[in-house]
């Protein structure tokens, strides 16, 4: 475990806590894409299949449980909570996210490290996570007003995988045989998808103005 990996995990944890805080305290999911939350629940469900078979460390297992629990509870809140679901804007959150799942599954069936069920599902989760933010970014561009918590959520979610890239560089130079092209390429693509959001997020922070993405 290196500092980049720990910073990445803490940033990822902070992103889910910010979102849970927003939804649980102000009982609103305005500006939050349910489609992205469903994709992330699927990402964790397919990535952490080994949570019961392979014990890595207490930290690893606890973090997996937190990410699984938070992503599924956020989906539950937006879909079923009597107050929160009223603030969900389903007319704006129209990204056809199954069009993301199908290519990711097909790609995982052809490009993977080993052709086993767990490995293919794990690879699928990597590809899916790379594009899971798209419904949320599309929604942000449609809803003019981006509230601070939603902006912070997206920023932290994008930053965590960026920190993981530094972790991979560090491990590449310090650990022999540490080569995982699939993980690296998916992680770089995922971070690049946030590039324009990061740009507008920093601009709004620098000029101390409300975050607005161009239509």
């Amino acid at each position: 475990m290196n500092i980049f990996r720990l910073a990445g995990d803490m940033t990822h944890l902070a992103s889910v806590l910010v979102l849970l805080l927003k939804i649980h305290t102000i009982k609103s999911c305005a500006g939050v894409s349910l489609k992205t939350q469903e994709l992330y629940a699927l990402v964790f469900a397919t990535r952490y299949l080994d949570i019961v078979t392979d014990f890595i460390s207490v930290y690893n297992t606890v973090m997996k449980l937190i990410f699984l629990g938070s992503s599924f509870s956020i989906v539950w809140y937006i879909r079923h909570h009597r107050v929160v679901r009223r603030s969900y804007d389903k007319d704006q959150d129209t990204f056809r996210h199954y069009l993301l799942m199908i290519p990711c599954m097909l790609l995982a069936l052809f490009v993977h490290e080993k052709f086993t069920f767990k490995e293919v599902m794990w690879t699928f989760s990597l590809y899916l996570e790379a594009v899971a933010i798209l419904p949320q970014l599309v929604l942000l561009q449609r809803t003019r007003n981006i509230d601070n918590l939603t902006g912070q959520y997206v920023f932290l979610l994008g930053a965590y995988r960026g920190l993981y890239i530094f972790n991979w560089i560090y491990r590449y130079f310090t650990e022999p045989h540490f080569v995982h092209w699939i993980t690296w390429i998916a992680g770089v693509v995922q971070t690049l998808l946030y590039a324009d959001f990061f740009y507008y997020y920093f601009e709004s922070w620098k000029n101390n103005v409300r975050l607005q993405l161009p239509a």
Partner: peptide, 10 residues
């Protein structure tokens, strides 16, 4: 343990 190593991230 190598296999574990490659799956020790979140």
């Amino acid at each position: 343990c190598y296999q574990k190593n490659s799956k020790d991230e979140l």
